[in-house]
Design a protein around this nucleic acid. Structure first.
Lengths: 256, 256
DNA sequence: TCAACTTTGTGCAAGCGTTCACAAGCGGTA
DNA sequence: TACCGCTTGTGAACGCTTGCACAAAGTTGA
């Protein structure tokens, strides 16, 4: 379902062909893409990759929007941020679109990933096929536990956390994934940053403090659950409120 | 770091004390809380729980905002959505605030969770201590693999996926977590929905189609990585653009 | 070639969410 | 009691995001 890009080495910088114009324009364009749109572009890319595998060559904004679960106008606007690659009256060429989105998302180069914290989650991440298959080869694993050092997980031997700096530099790691207990997360983060990692995906339930130039995204499972819980509660609240007045969630009076 | 709530049974509805007014008001208030604010409330709650454990009794919006990584004005506005529980000139009573946020997020009742798909990620989720410790006991596990049926994972025996309906009803599951391969996700989702589950946390890289009354949150690791990748690319782009003109990310000419 | 039909790309307006800035309110102190 | 300093709560402005609606542009078929 995802564009297969194979596994392998880290970052490669190819010599550039000297094209004439528009790089500043492109940089402006890239800068101008709203964060929310970037997230959706990634979703469109996944859907489109599936389409490619099914042999679909052309798709309309309506169809793609349906498959991606968004409004078609929003989709067209999102795509317009990266340029006008559709054909009126026809739709978008799937492969062309895949190519453009991949380029905008920076997927034309591979991003080597380091996972820190080889517990349950770390194991799962190290073995997660979705990373390498989408251009994010797992290049290094780290843990504090010396017993784990050298043990291969998902085909890659675990390094000791003290070696983060050298190993990350060596393997050109560009993204660090923190899957440690919360107490260790900030320290690990600091080490990653001093090792030159500028993008971090944080699974630990902590707010990380980082320099401005470092990009952090967090995935907090408990927060996700609590948001769902809120919706359950709201619903229960509505239902209960229609029947018994004066009672809030859980039968407790909200504002006496 | 989180408020300990212990494990145990499912949903309990206590008889209500008949308080005078304001339930409609509260429902309106709950409805009116912006989604983004709900997510932050969960973060504040985590930080506050940590404060409780450290024996902090009072905290100002400035301090809490710092710890949660947000603007203090935003924090105050977020808190104002759930009522005015601060004291001017002093700050907020930590425990009181914890109580109010927990109530708003619906954490006064426990939410039994079912994890479907006991692969690497499913294992990690089943063993994840962050769930039960924050009021989300894992009540059931499911997988298609008959060999897994009956095998305990994280202390809970795996059920066969065909039993979703009965088991979910029996154990009053209110949240379903989908950790299956993408191909199976929609079918699993449909089963959960027909089993009465109205909140779903989806780890599979698929856009799920559900009825309006079902709440879905998705965690897509590849999308997170791609968003990070976008930022790497933008940065590389900026840097490269300053040196060599006409060359985009990766040395490829962007718009010939 | 022309007309009918389809679909893109986008200007514009409405809706949300964020941030600012300050009045209102509270505790402490003389 | 009256004053002072501190912090909350919120009105209002701003900016981002969404959704509508339609002109522009391309295809198809006669």
């Amino acid at each position: 379902m995802a564009a297969q890009r194979g596994e392998g080495d880290g970052v490669v910088t190819r010599p550039g062909v000297a094209g004439a114009e528009a790089p500043a324009d492109v940089r402006e364009r890239a800068r101008a893409i709203p964060e929310a749109a970037v997230a959706r572009l990634a979703v469109y890319l996944r859907v489109l990759s599936g389409m490619v595998e099914q042999g679909v060559t052309t798709i309309s904004s309506e169809e793609l929007a349906g498959a991606a679960g968004v409004n078609s106008a929003k989709l067209r606007k999102d795509l317009s941020y990266i340029g006008s690659y559709g054909t009126r009256g026809v739709g978008y060429d799937v492969e062309v679109l895949v190519g453009h989105i991949e380029r905008i998302l920076g997927l034309t180069r591979k991003h080597s990933v380091a996972v820190v914290g080889i517990g349950n989650l770390g194991h799962a991440l190290a073995n997660y096929g979705g990373f390498p298959s989408r251009g994010f080869p797992v290049g290094a694993l780290f843990d504090v536990d010396p017993d784990l050092t050298g043990v291969p997980v998902g085909g890659i031997p675990v390094n000791h956390i003290d070696d983060i700096t050298t190993v990350c530099a060596e393997r050109e790691v560009s993204i660090g994934v923190i899957a440690t207990p919360p107490q260790a997360a900030q320290a690990v983060c600091d080490r990653l940053v001093s090792a030159g990692v500028q993008c971090i995906l944080n699974f630990a339930p902590v707010v990380l403090q980082v320099p401005d130039y470092v990009e952090v995204r967090k995935v907090d499972l408990a927060v996700e659950m609590q948001i769902l819980s809120f919706h359950v509660a709201r619903r229960a609240d509505e239902a209960a409120g229609d029947v018994v007045n004066g009672i809030g969630v859980d039968g407790v009076v909200i504002r006496p």
